[in-house]
Write a protein that binds this DNA or RNA. Structure first.
Lengths: 170, 170
DNA sequence: GGATGCATGTAAAATGTTACATGATTTA
DNA sequence: TAAATCATGTAACATTTTACATGCATCC
């Protein structure tokens, strides 16, 4: 008796709605800039992905745009509709989805550690540990001090994982 | 003085070459089945992604196909060329790429924990811990016992990360 | 011997990347 | 005021998803 099944949000869409919710409103450019500035390289934040996505979200009734001006320049400022907020919260609190493994470039490679020579393996694992360590303090998070903690404990957990692996293949 | 720049492999392509290297040869179907059977839902292993990718890899000279038969059915069996093996090893041993954050559905949501009510937050974090715990022993890895260890220590690291987060937001 | 699932694909549509265009604003 | 950068997009292209087609093998 309710509408056909309001297609579930992709993670890019969910994250975009969440970003709008954070400040109440945002332009496509601002959303794209947030993605681009994330420490996760996965989120490219390219205009070609974000601008069309926003008009899709509008068509689905999840956001509404207000035509505005920055100086002499036209622009659209997006806000969540009630539907959009509900969809965002459903996406955000989906614990099952949140526990999926996602895409992990390290894990993908670990599955093929046996294709490396012993020397390559050593160099590789050392290198990964060094690069991971360097991520402890990325240049973001000015306004979210607790995200600093999320980040640094992510690094700690990864380094711990790496040493378990070293021990296991020894 | 060397060729234009042999475009770098995507992670899907790198992983496909590595899968072929594991057994020496494989059909597109077998590669797709490996992706589909992975505990990481990210790798869909759909035919529409894998079959065309294999012909792309062939055009790039990284694999060669031998026309064969299963009973009365035609099929193509792929093997790595020397170039393909070199490209695969370069992809596999790239420590910098391996240390990227990739796409993590949990981390993406943690960045917006402040949009949840306290009760939602509790339910969410409990749920994630339960679902993560359940991944300790996935039904794969028959022939790679050490991957079992990689998996279980991944779970341990994640649970540890989760409890750091709980402590931080308390 | 019909239904179900395995194996090999292709086609249409959605999504994302890369590259460009264009005007406004800031900076040197 | 010229050059650089910010802001707002669009277009062409590549990739991936979803859905379908088709023939073989197996099982009931």
């Amino acid at each position: 008796m309710n509408s056909p099944q309001p297609e579930r949000l992709s993670d890019l869409e969910g994250a975009a709605l969440a970003l709008i919710a954070q400040s109440g409103e945002a332009t496509s450019y601002q959303v794209a800039a947030q993605f681009a500035g994330s420490p996760a390289e996965y989120w490219s934040g390219s205009a070609g992905a974000v601008y069309p996505m926003m008009t899709r979200l509008e068509r689905r009734g999840l956001i509404v745009g207000a035509e505005g001006m920055t100086g002499k320049r036209a622009r659209t400022v997006w806000r969540l509709t009630d539907q959009g907020r509900a969809a965002m919260i459903a996406w955000l609190t989906d614990a099952e989805r949140a526990s999926e493994m996602g895409f992990d470039p390290l894990r993908t490679r670990l599955a093929h550690l046996d294709l490396m020579t012993a020397a390559q393996r050593r160099t590789f694992l050392d290198g990964v540990a060094r690069f991971t360590e360097a991520r402890r303090d990325p240049p973001s998070f000015a306004e979210k001090p607790w995200m600093q903690k999320v980040q640094s404990s992510w690094v700690a957990a990864r380094l711990h994982w790496l040493s378990s692996i070293r021990a296991a293949i020894k």
